[in-house]
Design a protein around this nucleic acid. Structure first.
Lengths: 341, 341
DNA sequence: CTGAAAGCGCTTACAG
DNA sequence: CTGAAAGCGCTTACAG
């Protein structure tokens, strides 16, 4: 393989000159620069990444720690990965993807061996066991998801509290008085999925302050079980006129459930979910929803991470905790309840 | 950060001795070995990946070239990525993930800079423009998907021809005489998605040789359009009693379509798809299907790639083209046609 | 504006 | 069984 020595020789200059001509890090006469560039092109020169990393302590690689959890809905996960991967590429970084079930172990190995310049953590739990490792690492880290303790990392997440409020307020404004909220399974909470109760608690409070009845329940994340649960739920609360879904699997199952009950939204039931527009299209979901913005969150995390890596923001600059405001995407699945139109 | 010199000093030996003690590549007295290992552990030593790569020309990283195409069904893609990522980890390799729309460019950059020891190509087209780049690269490559020309790479794919035959034969054996096959969109073929016509041609031939009527059609890959297309299709061929789906979006949309028509499988229509069991569970699809085995294919590709990387198979050893035999997973969606039970 | 040299942190022949 | 040294391919102070 051709190295910088070959390029230098072909251009008739020293290796250091070839390096500077290529990087542009110091003034070079036009003539020499052209000769070096031509030689590099003709020989098909690409710098050796390992050597460069060794010399500069920079790899231009970002570590992406994802976890494919059996109780998470995989298609929803993919969009975060895409957002991170795409924006990393735009910023000139490659992605080292780890889905090792041993998150702390994989993270420590990747950071200690200096394979990456920074880390993006997906699927962050309230007391995420990867966080101590990340804080001890020399590289900066950005999270998608809100942990209990945000010190030492930049954090990005959907504003789940506000999402819960928006859902309730939207249906309240239309005249609904009895609602059901289907959240993720309970073991997602046990694992530290704080977004579940963040949305739920806010929804409960918003409902209480408006004198609404709100039934809360944890749905399964598996098909076809969640379908049966939805049937049971609608049977149990025949008076409820509004359904809130903070559970992707429930949203994906609902169209079939409604068909089976010969019901439709919004005629018989107003429905508001919480998922991305991409998700809605993939599953052909006709329900209005709070946009969960996975691509945007991934993009924000990478941007801030790159700023830290490239010292565009000082290491002492305070870390940010930034929430994306929920936006209700109207797909026409809500209306005033029956008898109130 | 602690390096091998620190470990050697702490253990009171030379750096070379520390290196050998850690790698076990030559005989070391028990006492020295223990001292070195203890020092490494106490200091928290992890070798610098760039330095090691520079010295050994091995990175222990595999490049994974995926493409998120707008006309591909994203959830199906994720499973291939998971299969590759998981088995790479099991073999002791990390994954560098690229989803750059400029496949050849990204591939060339990654291979030329020696960031990876080998390459896995996903989503391979008949005349894939990444293949010339891969063949010119010094690293071995493994593909998931069959290109027209397989020279210089190891290839793994589902046996789509046999899949088409199995689908037709299965329904023929049950007594069906008129079938419909819904394939992927036409532009998937134009882009080089050979699996579309590989399955279709084989199905057409199998049907012809048995005197069956087989209507073939290209379905869209978007919701809700594919749903409307399915309705139109079933309207157009009221005599057809069997439906074959080589189109994930169509499979995902079919339950709703059947509900809307007050039809069910297998009572009114026998249905056979081609997708993974994981996919069936995610979308709660009740249709029997040819298992597309994305995890298994990803695993096979990585295994063979690792064998080449680690020279367990000589560089001259002939490259393999291996097909996974289709297995029909019975979910009870096929039966003899109406009036023949 | 350009070059000779040191150094990044490893591994591995070469000596003993 | 162990050590001193060279070398992998870069970048970047240091000199001129």
């Amino acid at each position: 393989m051709v190295n910088i020595g070959d390029v230098a020789r072909a251009a008739g200059v020293a290796r250091s000159t070839a390096s500077y001509a290529l990087s542009g890090k110091r003034a070079i006469s036009d003539e020499v620069r052209d000769r070096v560039h031509r030689a590099a092109r003709e020989l098909g020169y690409t710098p050796n990444a390992g050597a460069r990393a060794l010399a500069t302590s920079q790899t231009r690689v970002i570590g992406l720690l994802a976890q494919f959890l059996p109780d998470e809905f995989a298609p929803a996960m993919l969009q975060y990965i895409q957002g991170v991967t795409d924006s990393a590429r735009d910023a000139g970084y490659d992605i080292l993807l780890s889905s090792d079930p041993d998150g702390p172990g994989a993270l420590g190995r990747i950071t200690d061996s200096r394979m990456v310049d920074g880390i993006v953590l997906l699927n962050v739990a309230a007391d995420d066991d990867r966080l101590p490792v990340l804080r001890a690492a020399p590289q900066p880290g950005a999270l998608v998801g809100l942990p209990r303790d945000c010190t030492g990392v930049d954090v990005f997440d959907l504003d789940f509290e506000e999402s819960g409020r928006v859902m309730v307020e939207h249906l309240h404004a239309l005249g609904h008085r009895e609602l059901i909220l289907v959240s993720q399974p309970e073991h997602v909470i046990e694992r530290g999925g704080a977004y579940v109760w963040r949305l739920q608690d806010a929804a409960v409070e918003a409902a209480a302050s408006r004198g609404l009845t709100l039934h809360t329940v944890h749905g399964s994340s598996e098909q076809p079980r969640i379908g049966r649960e939805l049937h049971a739920l609608l049977d149990a609360h025949p008076e409820a006129t509004g359904l809130l879904l903070n559970n992707e699997a429930a949203a994906a199952a609902l169209p079939t459930v409604l068909h089976e009950r010969h019901r439709s939204a919004p005629a018989d039931l107003s429905v508001v979910g919480r998922y991305s527009d991409e998700f809605a299209r993939t599953f052909s979901l006709p329900f209005s929803s709070i946009e969960s913005a996975p691509d945007r969150l991934g993009r924000m995390a990478v941007r801030q991470l790159v700023r830290r890596i490239e010292k565009q923001v000082s290491a002492e600059a305070p870390h940010v905790v930034r929430f994306v405001s929920p936006e209700l995407v109207d797909r026409g699945s809500t209306a005033p309840p029956l008898g109130q139109q």
